[in-house]
Design a protein around this nucleic acid. Sequence first.
RNA 1: CGGGGCGUGGCGCAGUUUGGUAGCGCACUUGGUUUGGGACCAAGGGGCCGCAGGUUCAAAUCCUGUCGCCCCGACCA
Length: 478
Amino acid sequence: MADNKKMVEEITSMDEDFARWYTDIVKKAELIEYASIKGCMVLRPYGYAIWENMQSIMDDMIKETGHKNVYMPMFIPESLLQKEKDHVEGFAPEVAWVTHYGNEKLTERLCIRPTSETLFCDHYKKVISSYRDLPKLCNQWCSVMRCEKTTRPFLRTAEFLWQEGHTAHATAEEAQEETIKMLNVYADFFKDALAIPVVKGQKTEKEKFAGAEATYTIESLMHDGKALQSGTSHNFGDGFAKAFGIQYTDKENKLQYVHQTSWGSTTRMIGAVIMVHGDDSGLMLPPKIAPIQVVVIPIAAHKPGVSEKADEIYNILKKTYRTEIDTSDKNPGWKFSEYEMKGVPIRIEIGPRDIENNSAVIVRRDTREKIFVSLDELPEKIGETLEAIHQNMYNKALENLNARTNTAKDFDEFKKVLEEKGGFVKAMWCGNRECEDEIKAQTAATSRCMPFEQETISDKCVCCGKPAKKLVYWAKAY
RNA sequence: CGGGGCGUGGCGCAGUUUGGUAGCGCACUUGGUUUGGGACCAAGGGGCCGCAGGUUCAAAUCCUGUCGCCCCGACCA
């Protein structure tokens, strides 16, 4: 038995090690607890606080670009869901159905929203009649439900929290502009709030959203070399408008269909943060979204003056930074590990030695560097250090992204590069679905996006050798 | 739905081959000593051994059935 177990451990792939590392972090950092409801998870206070910080920054950015928040019902009547053919085909297999209201059996069942396009369409049909009513720029924060067959904390859960923006415009050009604008908002958010660099581009036909004319994506790279679709922005053209009959009268008194977009980002972003920045000591949170930016840890708190000084520091810092103090009776070593596991960017140690020197020790989560700072300069130094941590985290993630982005001219090279280096492989593609399927079948890699910044690596498709149309980023993905 | 595995205190497991007082680590409670990298000592609480039958003087252990969960294959933010 023991031998067998050992053997299993020895042949355990890196993938499984990484998976174990990941699930360990989400539990030990107290982000989630598994719910007793299939596929769902309990977001615990610390995990939810991370989401709230993300939400607050993202919400500002969405409002900054002229959008207003609204709230739609969580139920969608079956007939409404079915109005757009591609959309219903894409989502029907994974929706949950409500069949009863109390004891009364419904004549038409209601699904729990897997996404709210159809509800927004139904609404827009009612409130849009003139070009003067356009554009409609709405956003909703809510949870949606998709009965996934396999789930994973944050990356794929049955119910998840997200923001979904839904807009309606007079022209195709305006809709396209909006689609790209919001994709850029996501990319900026990843860089400025999450310290994660992304690749921006368009999804292929195979990978695009059910019902969309075009889907754009930001793709980030986890430090195990797998890609993660981290936010998407869709241009619907007038497909939904025609299916739902959303029309307006233009300046020439002619009836026109609106052009729509939608874009969403989810709690999956927390998964991205864990897998991009985390290390062997646990989570590492970018300062902007960290629920605790600074934790004060008194050393030998029973010795004279220590408690008082620690309190004093805490009270000063909490005015400017999200600060906590840990006065529990755990020993310091335990506390150090605990807050590293939780990804707190800075910890401050204050003990008898520091009090003698009127100083404190600040320790960076990202570099473990210990910096001795005089108490007078402390608040200022904290600000500088938080900024430096963000920069350093971004730079490291960018280094990893660059190091793991390689090119391949033919299929043999493609397989070799993917096998040896992981990450993104840039390669040319003929535009045919068959080649995407073939590449996936042979390598497990999927097309992540056709980047905005196109290059010509070769004139032949990496798979079939026919003339190439597009440069594609390929990768194994979550 | 096809292949593999597992159900034993809150969590992680041992015990099952060969039936004989339910154990270990972590966590928890109390008291004390500690405190600059996951402390130590002492005492304590907590289990219809997934469920239902059967065999037996005796079942966590053997037999039958059943339920649940996890991993691998087809989809997805």
